[in-house]
Amino acid sequence: MKKKVALFFCGLNLYAHPHYFLDSSLQIDENIVKNFWKFDALNSKILMFDFDKNKNKILDKDEKEEFLKANFYKLKANNYNIFLQNEEKEFEIIPQNVEVLYENRKLTIYFDFPYELKGETTFCTMDEKIYLAYKLEDLKTNLKTDIQKSEYDYCIGVTK
């Protein structure tokens, strides 16, 4: 019986699918990565309904902070769903200049973080629970890149 229960719960993970779909745009330079995560229109509408308390179609300062606590800062446990490693080390992601904006009916999280490009560097999105799907929409860089994409995430190899 225990085996059947274990197989049932293992099988549930096989049918996991993302809850949010994000169009991701990046700017990668030698010392900084700038991220733009844009939610799809449906989820943006739902999130605005939940967090825009005064219904003015703008996330005010307190509303932004509540949104970030609920939907962004808790990603810290998984390094903000970002894997960044060069030949020497894996980087801890420490977001800076975090901003949330609602325009054209879509909610966008902007943030950047420093790193040091040394040799080959790998940048990947990885959500181990598959709650967020990251679609790479745009990449701006003067560096050499090798990009691999799937339905839910992407990896970019970066070199000078």
Rank of each mutant, 00 (worst) to 15 (best):
K2M: 14
L7A: 15
L7Y: 03
G11H: 01
N13V: 13
L14D: 01
L14Q: 03
Y15A: 04
A16W: 07
H19M: 14
Y20N: 13
Y20W: 10
Y20K: 12
F21N: 13
F21H: 13
L22K: 00
D23P: 00
D23N: 11
S25D: 11
S25I: 14
L26G: 09
I32Q: 15
V33W: 05
N35P: 08
F36D: 11
W37K: 01
K38P: 00
K38F: 00
F39D: 02
D40L: 06
A41K: 15
A41L: 04
L42G: 10
L47A: 10
L47P: 04
L47D: 09
M48V: 07
F49A: 15
F51C: 04
F51P: 00
D52N: 01
K53L: 09
K55M: 08
K55S: 12
N56T: 14
I58V: 10
I58C: 00
L59A: 09
D60C: 03
D60Q: 14
K61Q: 07
K61L: 11
D62N: 14
K64Y: 12
K64N: 15
E66S: 13
E66P: 06
F67T: 06
L68E: 01
A70D: 04
F72V: 02
F72K: 08
Y73N: 00
Y73R: 10
Y73E: 02
L75G: 04
L75D: 11
A77P: 08
A77K: 15
A77G: 08
A77D: 10
N79M: 07
Y80T: 03
Y80W: 00
L84A: 07
N86T: 05
N86M: 03
E88I: 11
K89S: 03
E90S: 12
F91D: 01
F91K: 05
E92N: 13
I93W: 02
I93H: 01
I94N: 12
P95L: 04
V98N: 10
E99W: 00
E99P: 02
V100C: 07
V100T: 06
V100S: 06
Y102Q: 07
E103H: 05
E103W: 01
N104Q: 12
N104F: 05
R105N: 15
R105A: 09
L107D: 04
L107H: 04
I109S: 08
D112E: 14
F113P: 12
F113D: 00
P114Y: 15
K118A: 10
E120P: 02
T121G: 08
C124M: 11
C124H: 02
T125Y: 14
I130M: 07
I130N: 00
Y131E: 06
L132A: 12
A133K: 07
Y134I: 00
Y134H: 03
Y134D: 05
K135G: 01
K135S: 05
L136I: 08
L136A: 06
D138F: 13
K140C: 09
N142R: 06
N142W: 07
N142S: 09
L143T: 02
I147H: 09
I147S: 06
Q148M: 11
Y154S: 02
Y154T: 08
C155H: 05
I156R: 02
G157T: 08
K160T: 11
K160Q: 15
